[in-house]
Write a protein that binds this DNA or RNA. Structure first.
Lengths: 244, 244
DNA sequence: TGTGGATAAAACGTCTGACGTATGTTAAGA
DNA sequence: TCTTAACATACGTCAGACGTTTTATCCACA
């Protein structure tokens, strides 16, 4: 048989209870990214994929359909299925992947955060309940804990900012904040010791101001938090750029 | 035969070149909204739908899958397929359909617009090129024209606000603004003569300030525009509410 | 009478094979 | 050389079978 090394790598083992189609979808992402099949190229046809992954053609079609709706693939009937983005929509919910100057994009993302998140913090200071504050404190601790353990804290960081948005009692920003912040995660994912120490500190300052219903304080703390982050990221990305 | 009146209404005629699955998806939306099948209820099973729409089960599954990824349906294996939002993601890109108090939601949407759009207008005043301004003027005219003709101007209105976002030269807000504003369209779609007259006027004030690179002026004009709109919509929705 | 487990029914998930239709390519003919 | 017809490729749709999960039913047993 051909593809034996492929089989070992990608052939699925049916034991999970997660739906097959979804697992194949994840495998397909991995396959495209590892191969790699770059933007504009076409992936193997449905029969080949079915054979490679050891599943039926309908399952492949499910997976492909999923990635089409996530903006990663495009189907041209009679011709083939093509890669149109390197990321599925979960990692890039705003569809920013089509821009290639990640550096500028990162700064623009922070400009947007600076537009809304200080205001959100002020709303939060106005509307947060006691339970909300408990939750915020817990998240602050978790972010710090994860950071100290050396793991990636970004997911938790987004959770914290989303929780602050939740405190604002405006459900629209509660949707918006994770969208924007996870885009930051994708396009400006830098970590740095000094940055983290400062982040943990300003996080607590924001939460404290919210707890005291100090709107101006919350707004200012958030501005500081984001400004410092923006500055550091700008510096680090400039270094990264100059190395090219 | 049963369902004859149904057949007349929903049975598809195979003549278009649009893919069957996509057409069925649209039919399914219409069916759910007209029936109506409200949030939380389940839709008929796949076999019934296949028979009703006169297509194969795989086609129904394609359509359902599409609406799942658009956040309108949820499939519970072994149980059925349920409506979780009254709108597909195109009309409700932020997934706000799961909330049922449209009134409060509309106000929250305007609060968010008030957070970002004045700031965007200020950025636009700073960065707009001459061609940008020409485009803005053109859109102002078009909005007015469409309004005078009695047609629905909201699409064009969103275009104008998106164009202003484009002038800011921040590509993130250029993505964000149409998301938010089309949600406004879905959840707070009110028209009113007085509102429109004022809207057309303040639109021009914003554009004029942008043209003059008057950041403060642009910000203020946008605040006025949105505040007035929020106020009117609040009043009209309160009337609507009290009639219940 | 009440409860727990076995059983059946309902509904989605996946596989297979066949045929339809759009697209692209190639080769023959004018 | 250009056009056109045939052919190959690849996705689209259908039909039927069987598996798995969830939910409802019902009966036995305490």
């Amino acid at each position: 048989m051909m593809n034996s090394e492929f089989d070992e790598m990608y052939q699925i083992v049916k034991e999970d209870k997660e739906l097959l189609g979804n697992r194949i979808e994840a495998q397909l992402i991995r396959y495209i990214q590892e191969e790699p099949i770059t933007v504009g190229e076409k992936i193997p046809n449905e029969f080949e994929l079915a054979e490679k992954f050891g599943v039926g053609r309908s399952t492949i079609r499910e997976a492909v359909k999923g990635l089409v709706s996530k903006g990663m693939l495009e189907v041209r009937r009679g011709s083939g299925t093509y890669v149109i983005s390197s990321y599925p929509a979960e990692e890039d919910p705003l569809g920013l992947g089509r821009y290639d100057d990640k550096y500028q994009l990162a700064l623009e993302l922070f400009d947007v955060r600076l537009m809304i998140e200080p205001e959100i913090a002020a709303y939060a200071a106005m509307n947060a309940t006691e339970e909300d504050v408990v939750e915020l404190r817990r998240l602050c601790d978790e972010v710090e804990e994860i950071y100290r353990s050396g793991e990636n804290h970004v997911r938790k960081d987004i959770e914290l900012h989303t929780a602050i948005a939740h405190c604002s009692k405006n459900r629209v920003v509660e949707v918006l904040v994770p969208l924007i912040d996870s885009a930051v995660h994708t396009f400006a994912n830098v970590t740095h010791r000094e940055l983290m120490e400062e982040t943990i500190e300003t996080h607590r300052a924001v939460v404290e101001a919210i707890e005291n219903h100090d709107q101006v304080g919350a707004r200012c703390a958030m501005v500081m938090h984001l400004t410092y982050n923006r500055q550091m990221i700008k510096r680090m990305l400039e270094q990264g750029n100059s190395e090219n």
